[in-house]
Design a protein around this nucleic acid. Structure first.
Lengths: 165, 165
DNA sequence: CAGAGCATGTAAGAAGTTACATGATTGT
DNA sequence: ACAATCATGTAACTTCTTACATGCTCTG
């Protein structure tokens, strides 16, 4: 009777992160989230450290003290339950097709309340922000997810600019 | 000194909703969120009723009892402060360009851990879900936001299918 | 040797969730 | 008359946020 069938997004993403990097400290996980382009993944210590406790209590990860010096360093790895849970979470097309939280989409839903020239200026500002966001990918083998996402978004925004005229 | 300069997304969206519909009850607002295709807008009473209290305390909305019968019916409208805050929130390109929370994007970031045929099956499942989500728009004047969003997403997913295939 | 970054965590509070509780009205 | 929906709200709980607190290690 595994009690932890339904992972939150933060829990699932954390399992996926550990699964990819094999082993990580809570601090490294926190930093990963902090660097993400989304404020959803705020990467606060107050979220991550208790999260790791929960995951370990659910036996999805296991930690071991691996200090090479006097500084403490607790490393987390997936258990076999954790790997199973990761696969379920990662391939969950039901959750993956949820529209999630999209600050631009939310605003577009109400943009008709604004005069067209304001709306146009707003969308062009977003495009400028996107240009600033595009950073070179560190990992060479990885296809840059952010880049592809930004491209899709730019195309979407252009259809709205066309529509407004 | 207006204390409420930085609205949360739920607060901003609620102002926008009232701004568009002119006047709404807490129940109607709650139902609006509940019907949305995103689970982010869960539309629970425990979120909306306290939210309306906060907005009224901040003088962004004002309510009046408008019962036509014995059933209570408290209707909310924007104050002038509320209309001003709405404009700031709606045209905030900084927040609008935040990547938000996207369950599919999160999974794609880790999809390389899965075998290609699994990844392909997963993406095709998401496309199927999208087809099921597409509902006819009620409001005739409104360009269907969900439809345009789904189109952009389908195009994005196809680039990933091409990449894997 | 100072400051940035690594590394751990906790405390107080905000905001949301589920579940409960109550009652009126409308449609079948 | 019965169920679904309108309409209000609260209570307990979970999770996340900001801010604090502590100490080690590396780089200039």
């Amino acid at each position: 009777m595994s009690s932890k069938t339904d992972l939150t997004e933060l829990e699932g993403a954390t399992l996926a992160l550990i699964g990819r990097e094999t082993s990580l400290t809570a601090y490294e996980i926190k930093e990963w989230y902090r660097r993400s382009p989304s404020s959803y993944w705020s990467g606060s210590a107050g979220a991550v450290y208790p999260l790791m406790k929960r995951l370990e209590a659910a036996d999805l990860v296991r930690s071991s003290e691996e200090s090479t010096s006097r500084r403490p360093r607790r490393v987390f790895r997936l258990t076999s339950d954790g790997e199973a849970a990761l696969q379920v979470w990662l391939l969950d097309s039901d959750r993956a097709s949820d529209a999630g939280h999209d600050p631009l989409r939310t605003r577009l839903a109400f943009m008709a309340q604004m005069p067209p020239d304001r709306a146009k200026a707003f969308l062009n500002e977003v495009l400028t922000h996107y240009t600033a966001m595009a950073a070179p990918s560190e990992a060479p083998g990885t296809v840059d997810l952010l880049e592809s996402w930004l491209d899709a978004r730019r195309a979407w925004i252009r259809t709205w600019l066309d529509r407004i005229g």
